[in-house]
């Protein structure tokens, strides 16, 4: 039962069949909240152990990739007696539509939480069309 709970807590990123990772470390899917605001979409991701130096946010065409590297800190000369989570990198991929203004995407990291601000392009914002009487 505890095993099931652990799996649900930290999901490993699944690779497509036939594709293997070249790095011998685990990659997890960070838990994400997405907030829809009037002028932007905010993506909040839990990536403990990741800071501004170890985080890569890349946008290629319409694919936005978050990749956070985590250096495993294993205390020397100790043995693990309780293991509820695994340590590894984080990765999550999103597809972005044309309605996001690519040039104004911003990202911040604080206390292991990434905040990604995706402003909506002017044309995508709801426009109010005034109706005039003829």
């Amino acid at each position: 039962m505890a095993e099931v709970a652990k799996e649900m807590q930290k999901k490993e990123v699944e690779t497509k069949e036939g594709i293997e990772r070249t790095r011998a470390r685990k990659v997890y899917t960070p838990a994400v909240d997405i907030i829809e605001k009037k002028g932007e979409i905010v993506v909040v991701a839990d990536m403990p152990g990741v800071d501004e130096k170890s985080l890569d946010v890349t946008l290629e065409k319409n694919v936005l990739t978050l990749y956070g590297k985590v250096e495993p800190a294993i205390p020397e000369g100790h043995r693990l007696i309780v293991s509820e989570y695994g340590i590894g990198d984080y990765q999550r991929v999103f597809a972005i539509s044309d309605e996001i203004d690519r040039d104004r995407i911003r990202a911040t990291v604080k206390s292991g939480v990434l905040r990604l601000m995706l402003p909506k392009a002017e044309s995508a914002k709801t426009r109010k069309i005034s109706v005039t009487v003829e």
């Binding site: 999901k11 899917t29 991929v93 972005i96 539509s97 309605e99 995508a124």
Partner: peptide, 14 residues
């Protein structure tokens, strides 16, 4: 619906 149009998580099926 609005969200899906703007930002579509690839791992939705996951």
């Amino acid at each position: 619906t609005n969200f899906t149009r703007l930002l579509d998580p690839w791992d939705e099926c996951e």
